[in-house]
Design a protein around this nucleic acid. Structure first.
Lengths: 352, 352
DNA sequence: TTGTATGCGTTATCAA
DNA sequence: TTGATAACGCATACAA
């Protein structure tokens, strides 16, 4: 090919694989092998090329790689989560794992109410040729999405409150266990009439937390009257309504476990509104350890799950999937949440 | 689930521009012209090709376009923001603008303390060949980053509390005005000793809010003693310290304006800790209208800025930059924040 | 162990 | 107004 047409390349132009090959006196393919860490390469050649790459500051063009490989170096994060802090913590964990790799993170909020949600996700994955996706709760509980990912050949990891999938596709917390622990803590403080603000029907996390709550009561031989369970939707507003129905009982509960912090904050808010002293007349336990839990007065006893670590692990599962088929000896799949004890729990001052 | 969807979407058989050209009986360049809305095209040809595109469900491959064009269809969002809700609202606004376009959003948190921050941003923009970036406060106040974007030929829009750049590169709120309004509201309630929890030095938003506060006091002829100004860092913890120093004054203020909600929550927290009744003994005003403002008791009077609309506008400024050189008659650059009155303000019960 | 030729899906050049 | 052909930067088969 003649060099009549192309103009003299500017010194500032980004070097390409051709420049490296020319400067190192090898073919492009050899440079490509160095980049992709091919095992069959003479060490001297490898070092020579590496030196040129260092000197020139060469970085492979991700778009060209994406085109040639038929897939992009993008990790998607799919969520329909109202909890901003959780999403950001997850993003932080994922980005920690992606730091110093060629991957970038793209975010896609979805609307579970939308009729086109599955198609949206499909075109998101297809168009961007995503390398993999991390699916956040509660949308992660939707098995359809996991099936779609498999169908499209897109790696995925789901985050959730229980094991919904095999180890390679899951980072889970032990919601049931830790809620049982939290409930035992309330019982140990002397509480017997304990109310539950449950999460929405159909949410696995809601079920896990409820079952943990119920199992701890059963284990202590405490009967749970039906009217001490109020349904919530994980929102502050629904928490208000649920709390009102609990506090209207006679006698009212001396403690309430709310299935997330939003609703726990609503319990506290409602108690204040009614002039009920917390924790003296009413103890409260939440779940998530979002910032709000530590910013209200009194600060809320709650459950903290290691979301950043889960995000990091989820991303590593995705990008490590390259070399190791299974995940044994790799990233953990279950993460232990812990009870954080703050000022919203005290022994009951009233006994019935 | 999505069986009604046209079968062309199968992963195995994605049509390419060649397929469209063959089916339409034209060259690929002509198809390319249709895709890119080239003006010099026979209408009949255009319609014919469009019909084939519709029928096949053809979608151009973004990776190939990125390679050929030398730039990607990605909008970056750069932030170093501790306020999760603000980031998510911004993301929502940007995504609303990007919906039904070929653009995707990629998120990049940065660490202003890091020595490599500028290099991180540079390589982020260069490697991904970003189409444009939205820069969130407070990092948006850094003029170096704007200069870097210009140098790299990357479009950018900054979000901030004041106009730091020209219209095409800025979405700003009127912090100074609205804080003056909030302060006048406190004065109208009868407050004279009003404390300020200021934001960090060097933050433009902190300066704007402080100046709005001071101007309203000056305008009412109220002298602001030096010891009624406490420095904060926009964090809850710093708000605690600042509030303590204010409440230790004698006499203490009857109202406090905190430069963001995190610190306003800290004011409330500290007041509760000391048994000071809010709003009877102490009125509180915050800024941001984050979820926490409406979830504490009493709910906080605060300033709400239209972040979703600002995000939408920022993204539109970026992707509209194509056809219209200037931004006249286009997206607005200034957005009006509003005072949200809740229960944390009341007339003072004590007069000095 | 290394190189050559070709493909990935699109856009740009320039001639028809 | 349209089309043949060459980029774009990298990876893979297949040779050497």
């Amino acid at each position: 090919m003649s060099k009549a047409v192309p103009a003299e390349k500017r010194a500032s132009a980004k070097p390409t694989i051709n420049d490296i090959a020319r400067l190192a006196g090898v073919s492009k393919k050899t440079v490509s092998r160095v980049i992709n860490q091919s095992p069959l390469l003479n060490e001297d050649t490898r070092e020579k090329v590496k030196a040129v790459i260092r000197d020139t500051g060469y970085v492979p063009n991700p778009q060209a790689r994406a085109l040639a490989l038929g897939r992009n170096f993008l990790i998607g994060i799919i969520h329909d989560n109202p909890n901003a802090q959780m999403i950001l913590n997850m993003q932080q964990g994922i980005l920690e794992a992606l730091r110093d790799t060629e991957f970038e993170m793209v975010v896609r909020p979805v609307d579970r109410g939308s009729a086109t949600m599955m198609d949206d996700i499909r075109s998101f994955i297809m168009r961007q040729r995503l390398y993999g996706v991390v699916i956040m709760p509660p949308i992660s509980e939707n098995d359809e999405i996991a099936r779609l990912c498999r169908e499209l050949g897109c790696r995925y990891v789901r985050m959730g409150s229980a094991r919904l999938d095999d180890d390679a596709h899951m980072v889970a917390s032990n919601d049931r266990d830790v809620v049982a622990e939290a409930t035992r803590y309330l019982i140990a403080q002397g509480h017997r009439r304990i109310g539950l603000v449950a999460g929405p029907h159909g949410f696995r996390s809601a079920r896990e937390r409820r079952e943990g709550f119920e199992s701890a009561l059963a284990e202590a031989g405490i009967r749970l009257p039906r009217n001490l369970i109020a349904d919530g939707q994980y929102t502050f507003e629904s928490g208000i309504t649920a709390t009102e129905s609990l506090l209207d009982q006679s006698p009212p509960p001396t403690a309430i476990f709310a299935s997330n912090d939003e609703m726990a904050a609503a319990v506290l808010y409602t108690a204040r509104e009614r002039g009920i002293a917390v924790p003296e007349e009413l103890s409260i336990v939440g779940f998530d350890d979002t910032p709000i839990a530590s910013r209200v007065w009194p600060p809320l006893t709650t459950v903290r799950w290691p979301i950043v670590a889960m995000g990091r692990s989820a991303a590593l599962k995705l990008i490590r999937g390259l070399d190791s088929g299974d995940d044994e000896g790799g990233e953990p799949s279950t993460f232990l949440s812990t009870l954080v004890r703050r000022g919203s729990v005290a022994p009951p001052t009233r006994t019935d």
